[in-house]
Design a protein around this nucleic acid. Structure first.
Lengths: 238, 238
DNA sequence: AAAGTCTCTTGTCTTGTTGACAAGAAACTC
DNA sequence: GAGTTTCTTGTCAACAAGACAAGAGACTTT
């Protein structure tokens, strides 16, 4: 082959920023101000600049879109999306998607492009009701599936929570991401028995009604072995 | 930002082609004919051309390097490597690594660049004894770790085997990739009890000595639940 | 032919984990 | 104080995994 065969491409980093709001999994979307797909909803992201790595570009976009320090949340690669027609512009644009897991963030700051950012329930999007720009429907589906698997085998679920949280908070994370209902006592036993998953603190959290729940913080472990079982609680019989 | 900030890059697909030879995990490496890193060993790979997706480029390289039909083996994305100094040429080159799992292939055909391809034991490389071109040491390490995890939760181990194989063949795959010794009876029970993992055939394979082993072929399942335990067999006590 | 050897295969026992669910504990309200 | 709600602990059966004994089926040696 000759060097002339080599295609020159633009490269972007797109972000699937997930959080839990009101017991439901949400993703941060922006309304595109410019062509292509102006006016459509899309995942936040942007072009690789200068001497950045792709991860650094993702971290920069994360800071610009949400104002949060990338060091405080979980960011991992999802994969590359390179279909030649995924972007209609003459120059090919290949993207690398990243999954970000964040606690319930304050209202996102509008990006520098004056695009409006908003939290959207993931269930509304996976159903296919709303179409996203580019191939972002597929990117979102892949990232959510990766997050679901990640929760099975790692302790990242704590990143969805505030620094101090109850076991019920943590269980609600799993229930929101997996879309299932889990057995409270068994979940309690599982997470308290897992070495380094959660560490009890002295505090308790008063609830509107019922016994106050002990507060925990994230432990040092990052892998969960044996993994969390993703099976739903069997529904009551009547 | 202005469009001028957008970096134009070349894009490559690099392949980590793994196989088992003589009970040890091997990877296909090529000796680079051209600069940069001429003379050094590297993972096979090549530039994205025309309207290819990255996966199509990986499949094309796979066919060129090994002569095998990509449809017959397992190919999955590992990740993107984008450090700005990973390739010394003035134009940035970003790569997407792919993991390929193959049965013991015939002597690889030399690539079109007259580069000599060779199977190399992975253990020799992970130890750091040999340095690979670019960031391929890191790529290889990541791909091998991904293969190890993949074997836990999927049935891809059968792809390392011939179409018909014995349970010992399959066990040797796990032992080679994980670098551990597994308990024969427990492994036998595990894989025969797993739904759709392996299907018995009528044949048996004569061995130099001992009882002939029944032959199996790969079943329809691709996930393994519960997963394979990666724990080593405890060594005999004396 | 009988015994030995080697590997594949089946079975047993113990231990640990999971799912189902009962019941105790700690707050609040009426 | 009784009732309600939620958090937390405990119990039991079913299942999976690790350790390991022993049977099965081929060949080789005596």
């Amino acid at each position: 082959m000759t060097p002339r065969d080599r295609v020159l491409v633009h490269f972007t980093a797109d972000l699937v920023i997930l959080t839990i709001r009101g017991g439901a999994l949400h993703v941060l979307l922006v309304e595109r101000a410019n062509e292509p797909f102006a006016g459509l909803l899309a995942l936040p992201g942007g072009f690789l600049r200068g001497a950045e790595t792709v991860r650094q570009a993702a971290e920069r976009e994360l800071r610009e879109e949400t104002g949060v320090d990338p060091a405080t949340l979980h960011l991992e690669q999802v994969g590359v999306y390179s279909a030649p027609d995924r972007d209609p512009r003459p120059r090919r644009v290949i993207t690398c998607a990243f999954l970000a897991i964040a606690p319930d963030l304050p209202v996102p700051t509008a990006g520098s492009d004056a695009r409006s950012a908003r939290w959207t329930p993931v269930d509304d999007l996976l159903g296919g009701a709303t179409r996203l720009a580019f191939d972002h429907d597929q990117v979102l589906a892949d990232a959510v599936e990766q997050a679901r698997e990640k929760l099975r085998f790692s302790t990242v679920a704590t990143v969805f929570c505030e620094p101090e949280f109850t076991i019920s908070d943590l269980r609600e994370v799993y229930e929101a991401v997996w879309g299932v209902e889990l057995d409270r006592p068994n979940f309690h036993r599982k997470v308290t028995d897992a070495d380094g998953f959660i560490i009890p603190t002295d505090g308790k959290r008063a609830v509107p009604t019922g016994r106050p729940a002990r507060l925990y913080r994230a432990g040092p472990a990052d892998v969960l072995d044996p993994p969390m079982a993703r099976t739903a609680r069997t529904r009551p019989r009547f």
